[in-house]
Write a protein that binds this DNA or RNA. Sequence first.
DNA 1: TTCGCAATGTAATATCATTACGTTTGTGAG
DNA 2: CTCACAAACGTAATGATATTACATTGCGAA
Lengths: 137, 137
Amino acid sequence: MSTGHHHQPIDLTRNQSLVLGALEKAEGPLSAYTILDRLRDDGFRAPLQVYRALDKLLGAGLVHRLESLNAFVVCAHPNCHAQGMIAFAICGTCGKVDEFSDAVVQERLGSWARENAFKAEKSIIELRGTCAGCLNG
Amino acid sequence: MSTGHHHQPIDLTRNQSLVLGALEKAEGPLSAYTILDRLRDDGFRAPLQVYRALDKLLGAGLVHRLESLNAFVVCAHPNCHAQGMIAFAICGTCGKVDEFSDAVVQERLGSWARENAFKAEKSIIELRGTCAGCLNG
DNA sequence: TTCGCAATGTAATATCATTACGTTTGTGAG
DNA sequence: CTCACAAACGTAATGATATTACATTGCGAA
């Protein structure tokens, strides 16, 4: 599988910066509507303002979408460009998300795709469970 | 990672059979509301009838949820018991879904979890792209 | 300046899922 | 058998997530 990601570095607009900032301040993933609530004081009024900013941020690879949560997190990498395949471990107790990647997993899924003539554009890998902190604490 | 799945074989109720039947008849994944629409003639009236049946079917491993689609498919295995980790390749063009699993991927994700003291309860692996048929056709 | 495009503002609507509450049904203990 | 309990069911209301539609604004290129 080609990594397929061609994230464009972009100049963030005001709305995009605000949304990114909200996600950076947050400890974990936020839903679009939670972001909206947190940006009311900055003039946000409608879901679309959030979704439009998220689209751009996702496109630039600065933010990831967690499909199993319908929520969004900032990319863990300082200047995330073309990470290829990314996986997430999501703690159901504290809500924190750990982002990681694994070349072997990437290679295996890529192999499957090649063997089955499937052109993969995006992969979603999410582990749901309990993090170390919550298991001990 | 332990495979962790302990699907109970169950005696299906009428509603559960109807929902399973709808998914079996379908070519690809269906949303809960699409299932509801297809079962109107069988007396279905409310979303909850579908969601309750789906809960049981998911618990029994007869049906899978596609997180990136908010939709449901029948398990590809005749008598799906305890498959461990399952992956899906979802064609964005025709909507068909291919279910597969890979022991190496399972092992690698399990290793990551072990090394990070993360107790994984469920894994979600979905490839989005275009299937062979749609690439050729 | 004028055209065109990206971003924005706002309202309405579509889609997905759950809570709440009351009733029915099946089943095992006595 | 029948009582008591649990599981399943019916229905309405609501909550949560996401998109469509349309008017407007800001700004760079011709």
